[in-house]
Amino acid sequence: MKPTTRGTLAAVLAGVAAAVGAAATPAAAAGTVPVPVPLEGAESSLGLELPEVGGEVPVPMPGDPAGPRHVEGRLLPERAVPQLPVSGGLPGLGLHAPLPHVLGEGFDHLAVDAPASGLRTLAPGLTLDAPLTPPNPDAFGLPGLKLPEAGVLTPVLQTVPGADLGLDDGR
């Protein structure tokens, strides 16, 4: 294969890879996948205005666990079973529904917007310690006895959900 052909082929492959990467980036960057609910067919067949509904489904992303770490005075490392962080979100919802003229002529649509909100979690973990102390130089390097230790690292859940409710003229 000629060098110019190889260069052209490499440029085309690089362009295709960039286009595919650029197309995949918005969904991964947003952390949610939009889910529209198509009601246009039912709306036209029934001859009346139906609500517009859509949602967002979060994409959970696992993080890097904080691994075991050595603590002076313990034989076993702290966090024997580390906590696994997972970030994602709560699902979102968007609803725009027709409303009879209950509140007057200016308000004939109800809108609810509950965007997907971030969610950060940590799975439960475990910490253990042996029933022996570290080697004691006063006892010729032999370890002493102590009570064994075991503990559960509690799970964590952090989020701040929000929603908006409103009435409008439907424009």
Rank of each mutant, 00 (worst) to 15 (best):
M1H: 06
P3H: 14
P3N: 14
R6A: 15
R6D: 14
L9T: 13
L9H: 07
A10D: 00
A11V: 12
A11K: 08
L13M: 13
A14F: 09
A14V: 06
A14M: 13
G15K: 03
G15W: 06
A17I: 00
A18V: 10
A18D: 01
A19M: 14
G21D: 06
G21N: 01
G21Q: 02
A22G: 00
A24C: 01
T25V: 08
T25D: 05
P26N: 12
G31F: 01
T32Q: 02
V33M: 05
P34G: 10
V35M: 14
V37Y: 07
L39K: 02
E43C: 01
S44A: 15
S45A: 13
L48Q: 12
L48F: 04
L50R: 10
L50A: 09
L50E: 05
P51S: 04
V53P: 14
V57H: 04
V59Y: 06
P60T: 03
M61K: 12
M61D: 13
M61H: 11
P62F: 12
G63N: 01
A66C: 04
G67W: 00
P68N: 14
R74H: 11
R74S: 11
L76N: 06
A80D: 08
V81C: 08
Q83V: 00
L84Q: 15
G88V: 10
G88F: 00
G88E: 04
L90H: 02
L90D: 07
L90P: 03
P91G: 10
G92V: 04
L93R: 08
L93D: 12
G94R: 15
L95K: 11
L95Q: 03
A97I: 02
P98V: 03
P98A: 06
L99C: 02
P100T: 04
V102T: 12
V102H: 13
V102G: 05
F107R: 08
F107I: 01
H109A: 08
H109G: 00
A111T: 10
A111Y: 10
V112S: 02
V112F: 15
D113R: 14
D113N: 14
A114D: 02
A114W: 09
P115C: 09
A116F: 03
A116W: 02
A116C: 10
L119M: 03
L119G: 03
L119I: 08
L122T: 03
L122H: 09
A123F: 01
G125D: 07
T127G: 12
T127A: 12
T127K: 08
L128W: 08
A130Q: 11
A130H: 01
P131H: 07
L132P: 13
P134H: 08
P135V: 05
N136T: 14
N136R: 11
D138K: 15
A139H: 15
P143R: 05
L145W: 09
L147R: 02
L147C: 09
E149A: 03
A150L: 05
V152D: 07
V156P: 13
L157G: 00
G162P: 00
G162D: 12
A163L: 11
A163E: 06
D164Y: 11
L165H: 00
L165N: 00
G166M: 07
D168E: 01
